[in-house]
């Protein structure tokens, strides 16, 4: 089920991009306030919320280095090789994954999703390998605390 929602999100990448761009500042703004009042006390429920919401929509793996807006709304951490600049050369002729034939290649999906997005060109930028220390952390909270830039393209 969740896989089908993921495909739906990519097919409607443009809508989700708009939604993301509209909602993200609101979430981050709210969290900035929450952070001021509660400090780190609410980190666990907030992280769980992010995990739940992005999990349902994008099969988010909580890498803590969210790059969805530049990968066509297709989470690269679902690639069995966790490639951040894909796809690899093993994609099957029908566009499915070499490792999991039952799944569409997340990077075929990513380029497709990016082509539907206004800011889809961001997929052309190199995304360096993830910082594994951030696994399981909330990207929203990290942005709210100024640990990483809000725009993926502004991150180094």
């Amino acid at each position: 089920m969740s896989y089908r929602i993921r495909l739906f999100a990519i097919r409607h990448a443009r809508f989700f991009e708009g939604l993301y761009n509209a909602v993200n500042p609101a979430i981050v703004g709210t969290l900035k306030g929450v952070n001021k009042v509660f400090g780190r006390k609410l980190d666990r429920p907030i992280t769980a919320m992010e995990r739940g919401l992005k999990g349902v929509l994008f099969d988010c793996q909580m890498c803590g280095n969210c790059a969805l807006s530049k990968t066509g709304m297709s989470c690269p951490m679902n690639c069995p090789k966790t490639i951040r600049n894909g796809p690899c050369g093993g994609v099957r002729a029908d566009g499915t994954c070499e490792v999991k034939p039952e799944m569409k290649c997340v990077w075929v999906q990513a380029w497709d999703g990016a082509s539907r997005m206004k800011g889809g060109d961001a997929i052309q930028d190199i995304e360096f390998a993830v910082d594994h220390r951030d696994q399981g952390k909330s990207t929203w909270l990290r942005i709210a605390r100024g640990e990483i830039a809000e725009k993926v393209s502004d991150r180094i």
Binding site: P87, R92, W107
Partner: peptide, 15 residues
Amino acid sequence: SINPFVPPIKNRADQ
């Protein structure tokens, strides 16, 4: 390396 012969064929040059 590059594999121009498998999907997404139209994006392989971008890659």
